[in-house]
Design a binder for these strands. Structure first.
Length: 477
RNA sequence: GCUGCUAUAGUGUAGUCCGGCCAAUCAUUUCGGCCUUUCACGCCGAAGACUGGGGUUCGAAUCCCCAUAGCAGCACCA
């Protein structure tokens, strides 16, 4: 496996403090994995501390189950977290620094209507609240905290530069009032906005380097205003480009919608880009990690390719996956004149010491319909013997044609998987395109939870062996 | 509309800061071949790119300008 080196980080020689800061709105997906892994990779490279900061300052975007899911997903990824911080535990801190920012003249309480402020901002005009004194602002802030305002009636804004050429920079909000919905962890009416809480936390937690998506470039500039008011040093920032994924929605809200409407089975539906979906399909966390590091921190927008992920995963999984036969759409056929015998097939072709599977042939085999319908003249049943295929009255007839592999080679006979009719287990292979019904070897029962290779079909993770049929999830070819 | 960022093969990526060693790296992909009782793995080989146009220079993927395209932000979301 080729190991790709990430570009070096400035000012990182003496260690770094970094953070991964998801909001708990759902499980982690590939987009999160990029942020989580990249930061983790740098912490591991330079040494230091990795903080998981749960950004739960918007009750509208909290799914109380997500707190747990995020933790699970991170540990699945094999990421080392040294400290977990919940922003909802820190509201008092934000209020304290909010007050201080007002005292320093860096913020004011604005009671303009949203639309009104927006228009003033476009015209680079100060709103009527902007000139209020520090004392007046502090009083208003206290009233906010005391719950004396309705939602939307007041907010705290950071004083920036009304002439700033980028309208996005002008007096952005730092706190808002929210009466509803209720926050699952705390009881509050004044909520810090992302740019404020992030600035305070990044400083207080000693964050030295931040790697995040370029959708945060404007936020980085806004946060700099707050750092400047407090006289703090800003971390080193890196913004990587947008990442799309072939044929997948990564938006948590869209995924949730699909689950609610019944389009998807759940967060681990194999058509989804969540980490739990990948895990269920047998994608290894190391493959995700490698694929993400391979992509790096470039600022270009990219499209994540499944092929590249699969290639990484194949490298990891191929040496460990045991081989088995899976026969899709099985057709039972008796083989004429064939001596009963027992086939021995290697669990892994490159590692004979691992042992063999034993498949007793007693006259009738199950073959994949697709293979028979190609009407080959001769086929070789893998690890068994050769068979001549003919038709009589529209029915396929198979006749024993010797054991010699070389003879099959000579006529370029396809070598195909098969199963004894009397000891095959029903098995459903679940693919993104749909389910494939078939049968597999009884020994697959022993592989619950692990990834196997169904020979000539592809890799699959054995998900469930408890029901009346084995359930396997297709990983990739 | 305003502000900013980016632009290397199908995909991802190296090279760009400090112009020549780049007729452009590596991986994946596709196609051949070898190996093989899997259409897997492994091995060998091939295919495939510097967005376009100007400029600077002896020399540009690399510097400058313009164009084009994509993306992001302009939320009391993160």
């Amino acid at each position: 496996m080729h190991i790709k080196e990430l570009p070096r980080l400035e000012k990182a020689e003496h260690g770094v403090v970094m953070r991964f800061a998801p909001n708990p709105s759902g499980p982690l997906h590939l987009g999160h994995a990029r942020a989580a892994v990249l930061n983790d990779a740098y912490v591991k490279r330079y040494g230091g501390k990795y903080i998981l900061r749960i950004e739960d300052t918007d009750p509208k975007r909290i799914d109380s189950e997500a707190y747990q899911m995020v933790i699970e997903d991170i540990s699945w990824l094999g990421i080392t977290i040294h400290e977990v911080v919940y922003q909802s535990d820190r509201f008092d801190l934000y209020y304290r620094y909010g007050r201080e920012l007002i005292e320093r003249g860096g913020a004011y309480v604005c009671s303009c209507e949203n639309e009104q402020f927006r228009q003033l901002k476009q015209k680079k005009t100060a709103c009527p609240c902007r000139p209020l004194s520090v004392e007046e602002n502090l009083t208003l802030f206290d009233k906010m905290l005391a719950g004396e305002f309705y939602e939307g009636e007041a907010s705290v804004r950071v004083r920036t530069d009304l002439d700033h050429p980028d309208p996005a920079m002008r007096d952005f909000p730092a706190f808002r009032i929210l009466h509803q919905p209720l926050h699952p962890r705390i009881d509050a009416v004044v909520y810090p906005l992302m740019n404020f809480s992030v600035s305070i936390d990044d400083h207080l937690l000693g964050v030295t380097h931040v790697i995040r998506g370029k959708d945060h470039i404007a936020n980085t500039r806004r946060q700099r205003y707050i750092f400047d008011y407090f006289g703090w040093d800003v971390p080193v920032y890196r913004h990587y480009g947008r990442m799309g994924i072939e044929g997948v929605v990564l938006s948590t809200s869209q995924m949730r919608q699909g689950i609610v409407s019944g389009e998807y089975e759940g967060w681990d539906d194999i058509r989804l880009g969540t980490l739990r979906a990948l895990s269920r399909r047998g994608i290894s966390p190391d493959a995700v990690r490698q694929a993400v590091i391979d992509i790096g921190i470039g600022e270009t927008d990219i499209s994540f390719s499944w092929d590249n992920l699969y290639a990484q995963n194949r490298m990891i999984v191929d040496p460990v996956a045991n081989r088995y036969f899976f026969v899709s759409h099985p057709v039972g056929l008796e083989i004429r004149d064939a001596p009963h015998q027992v086939a021995h097939a290697l669990l892994h072709p490159n590692e004979p010491v691992r042992g063999k599977r034993i498949l007793p042939f007693t006259g009738t085999v199950l073959l994949p319909r697709e293979e028979i319908e190609k009407e080959p003249a001769v086929i070789r049943l893998k690890d068994l013997f050769n068979v001549i295929v003919s038709r009589e009255d529209g029915e396929y007839v198979l006749t024993y044609a010797g054991d010699q592999l070389s003879e099959a080679r000579d006529v370029k006979a396809p070598i195909i998987q098969w199963l004894p009719a009397d000891c095959a287990l029903p098995c459903v292979l679940r693919k993104q395109e749909g389910d494939v019904l078939g049968v597999c070897e009884p020994d697959v029962m022993r592989e619950a939870g692990s990834v196997v290779q169904f020979e000539r079909v592809g890799f699959a993770r054995i998900d469930d062996t408890a029901g009346d049929r084995i359930v396997a999830y297709f990983t990739h070819r």
